[in-house]
Design a protein around this nucleic acid. Structure first.
Lengths: 229, 229
DNA sequence: TGACTTTATAGCACTCGATGCCAAAATGGA
DNA sequence: TCCATTTTGGCATCGAGTGCTATAAAGTCA
């Protein structure tokens, strides 16, 4: 086996930490948010692959090299502040009452960490749309979501015993991830306008072991399309 | 949105079809299998990232350019003849009796498509180990497995009605994928030696909606480690 | 045997993402 | 003003991947 994260093509792994004006030296000339805005605009207009890092940097008024100090890769731009969401998920899971059924806790936690204000939804839809359709981003999502899985696996292991790497925790975690991804993808691609409801129902289906009757009922309710604004 | 697969950096999408001596012109100087053998050897020895395509090509006695006629990317080498397995999965699903419960069909189909001979297991373990640990391959797996998901979603849609892109089919498909991946990863990383059993149990857990008691029982049976040969 | 067709190959140039290295710019403090 | 600190930009370099083209090897047909 080996590998798993070698120096590879010369990488040290630890890159310069993203600029965060410590009121001492030169002040950062921009922010992650500003770069992301420009980048998402270009992605939305020209497509992810057709947008080069050079173009993003130019649009953001920085150099190509500086771009890579704010984001480790072009793909990371689309993910925004995903890491913060992980912390919230973990908090939700560890804060749940011990006597609440495991899958209920999981469902509530995922739903809770995915409540967004009306103002954020448009941008989120662009992000999730990209993540679930552009091959390069679909690929990268597996890496980003790995941490999400770890959080869930830790929680499950805490409930049922045994190591987080065991079959039980891993299966629950990855199946839960798939469930969440499905809900997001369906929402982003306009199956419905209710993200929270979509996630909630998806997890209820999962918790029921994908009961065929329940699935049939849900499928027959053709509530697709976004209500006309 | 846009994009989803533009010409991108000049790509036409359809590349030269991999050489398949049609008893007419010059004969291919090697085979996919030969290249894969060399490559997996190097991956196993030096790590995936540290192994350049140049090195693989040299080891296989071909040019760098020729390598890319046999495999579309360095990552694809690890996946071998995965496409063929998709066909088998689809066959298993469509061939199942209509009155057999959906999740049972799914479980049996996945188990059936993942029976391997003793001779194949060692190489498979290397492949799956790489796929589930090397970041670049973890990433790529999401793309390769997307087709797997489609097959399952089609099957589910056929059972419960509605479009394959709906929440129901998508959720089942992605959760099933996560389940299968968990079983494979656990097996590849030596939790057990019984791949079939691992997959079977993972899908039973899924079909039960991850019943907590059942999970606990499974977790408490510490049958890990490969029995001494 | 010699054209002709077909198929596979090697080599080159090029794009793009990503990283290391270093000098220059900007800012606050002594 | 000099210095430490931090950000920035430019340059070089690597590696994956692709288009293009000339060439090599094989079969076919006259």
């Amino acid at each position: 086996m080996t590998d798993a994260n070698p120096a590879g093509a010369g990488g040290t792994g630890v890159v310069d930490s993203p600029p965060t004006s410590a009121s001492r030296g030169r002040r950062p000339s921009t922010t992650r948010e500003q770069i992301a805005r420009q980048a998402l605009d270009l992605f939305d207009r020209d497509g992810f692959d057709a947008t080069t890092v050079d173009r993003i940097a130019t649009a953001a008024g920085i150099s190509r090299r500086t771009f890579f100090r704010y984001y480790n890769s072009k793909r990371d731009v689309v993910w925004g502040e995903f890491d913060a969401e992980l912390v919230r998920l973990r908090d939700q899971l560890v804060g749940a009452p011990r006597d609440e059924p495991m899958m209920d806790v999981l469902r509530r936690a995922v739903v809770a960490t995915n409540r967004f204000g009306a103002g954020e939804l448009d941008e989120l839809r662009i992000r999730m749309g990209l993540i679930s359709t552009v091959p390069a981003l679909v690929a990268h999502s597996a890496v980003r979501y790995a941490e999400w899985c770890e959080v869930v696996a830790d929680f499950v292991a805490g409930r049922i015993g045994g190591p987080p790497g065991g079959l039980g925790p891993q299966t629950v975690a990855r199946a839960a991830l798939g469930t969440a991804m499905a809900a997001f993808a369906c929402w982003a691609n306009h199956d419905t306008d209710d993200l929270t409801g979509e996630v909630d129902e998806a997890f209820r289906l999962l918790g029921d072991g994908f009961d065929e009757d329940r699935l049939r009922i849900w499928a027959s309710q053709d509530r697709s399309r976004i209500p006309a604004t």
